[in-house]
Simulated assay, not measured.
Amino acid sequence: MLVQILKSKILRAETTDAIKDYEGSLAIDELLMKKVGLMYGEKILVGNITNGKRFETYAIPAPAGSKTISLRGAAAHMGQKGDLLVLMSFAMMTPEEAKAWVPSTITLAEHNSKIIKSQNALQ
């Protein structure tokens, strides 16, 4: 048996823009993706703290250091600039693996200006 466990989380990511004329996805500052181990094209669950909507999409890297969190395509209908998001990815593990697992998480300050809290984040 396998269970689905939280792998990566970026908390309080502030949406920098919403571009509807795009194929779809969520662009995330590449440095933030690396910190929590998110991969290009990885499926993510997005919770919009501001409006309560939840949706799935995939992660694509935005330029490193840009502080970008950009809703694109259909995802752009789920929020707007300034909304706060929770970005989550999950992994399948055996219950034994899950007992020892610690997810990589970061919490961002206003305007994605810096990481104010991290757990098991990569350097």
Rank of each mutant, 00 (worst) to 15 (best):
L26H: 03
H111P: 04
A13I: 03
D17H: 14
D83W: 03
A62C: 07
V36H: 04
L85V: 07
M93G: 06
S113R: 13
S8E: 02
I116C: 11
K114S: 15
L6W: 04
Q123W: 07
M1Q: 14
S70T: 06
K43Q: 15
D17F: 10
W101D: 02
Q4V: 14
A13H: 01
L71A: 01
R72F: 03
L71F: 03
L122V: 08
G82P: 07
G82V: 06
G47L: 14
A27R: 00
R12L: 15
L108Y: 02
Y40I: 12
S70D: 02
L122Q: 13
S89T: 09
V86H: 04
T57A: 08
S113A: 15
E96M: 13
R12T: 12
A121T: 06
L87V: 15
N112Q: 10
G65P: 04
K53H: 11
S66K: 02
I106N: 03
M78N: 09
T16Q: 05
A59S: 14
E30L: 08
R12K: 14
E56V: 14
S66E: 05
L122I: 10
E14G: 05
E110M: 06
A74I: 11
E97N: 10
G24K: 02
M88W: 02
I49T: 12
K9V: 06
V3W: 00
W101R: 05
Q123N: 15
L38E: 04
T107P: 01
L2H: 14
P63K: 12
R72S: 08
L71N: 00
L71P: 01
V3M: 11
F90M: 03
A121H: 04
V46L: 06
I49M: 13
